[in-house]
Design a protein around this nucleic acid. Structure first.
Lengths: 199, 199
DNA sequence: GTCTATATGGCGATAGAC
DNA sequence: GTCTATCGCCATATAGAC
């Protein structure tokens, strides 16, 4: 029935907000029910348990994240343009706050990833293989592509994750920090490109 | 009495491990008491409440971290050498796992930082002021020092925080990842220096 | 100072009426 | 499908003996 599926959407949206901001251990089923406008009993009617509901939210977040980090634009653009595209996509994803959620929960329970890994374990990391070839054909510094992968992702992800402390360290309020971030994707890409490009 | 202070140390060490790995919400007073080899009642005798004990642990971690990010070597070394020193210090701190703890708890309760900020709010960020002058006198690219601060810290901090996912993305086991990290501080510094230095 | 036993409250989950 | 009421458990904290 359509009505029940509407309720389900409300629950999932409320649960996502709660789990993302408070984490699994900090989230209360009562709070989710309140935000969804239903009783705690109804909440359990739709999703049998807290674990069950959490798993759904976590998997959705992971499904959004994995393609972002495991694909690498397969088009005719230059490697510089690919880097720019990547930083732009990654930074806009990160800014919505799902990234810290993933890190927190994966650290709470590392096994949570094991099952999903098996599907992909055989294929190589596309970023690494791409930069292996780029390093052979183009005029760039030789840096282990594993490091390049780590550095590029760090530059993109960490500013959102460490927002609270960066703000204070740089004496900015939330609004000023957000404004600073508006120009960040371009700066991050330039930075990365300059670091490995030979003049 | 000396014995009581010995017990206190055991409690603090146990509490540190528990809070750092499980977070505030995931930590159990019983577990801390067990690890310290005392009863739950004794634990409460030393530190009245969980909040109280947590605050002590959190402040200790912050006291270790703040100097690391807010000082900037005041010596005769070149800016390149200062960068190398910073990456080395920061990365060795980060690898011990306190950083994710700080981020997690600050996000759980951002007000936790407010009180401590007031002491330092008036002084400028030393990294930013330093690179402001470096950009005027040396032959480096003009990049907003706020971005430089964010990028350098991101490169240093994130590889430890996102360890679980980087491992899997790069198809490395824990040992291989740790080995990769052994050479990381040097690579990170070189990367940063190349990115802003003009040829 | 240290313990056992217990008070107190909160949370996930369910029973059962409507 | 949705609710109120309640069960059962677990966690923090305290009482009170030693």
């Amino acid at each position: 029935m359509q009505l029940s599926s509407e309720t389900e959407k409300k629950i999932l949206e409320a649960a996502r907000v709660e789990f993302e901001t408070k984490g699994y251990n900090g989230t209360r089923m009562q709070k989710i029910a309140d935000k969804a406008g239903i009783s705690k009993a109804s909440l359990h009617y739709y999703f049998r348990s807290k674990d069950n509901l959490f798993e759904k939210i976590f998997n959705d977040a992971l499904d959004e994240y994995i393609p972002l980090i495991s694909t690498w634009a397969d088009n005719d653009l230059s490697w510089e343009a690919k880097v720019e595209q990547f930083t732009k996509d990654m930074i806009s994803f990160i800014r919505h706050g799902r990234m810290l959620f993933l890190i927190r929960e994966v650290n709470r329970n590392p096994q949570i990833l094991e099952e999903r890994i098996k599907r992909k374990a055989k294929s190589q990391n596309k970023f690494v293989t791409y930069f292996d070839t780029v390093q052979k054909s183009k005029n760039i510094r030789k840096v282990d592509p594993n490091y390049l992968y780590i550095i590029l992702n760090s530059i993109c992800s960490f500013p959102a994750i460490n927002k609270e402390m960066f703000q204070r360290a740089l004496r900015l309020n939330a609004k000023q920090y957000d404004e600073l971030m508006d120009g960040y994707a371009k700066t991050a890409a330039d930075f990365f490109i300059h670091a490995i490009k030979k003049q």
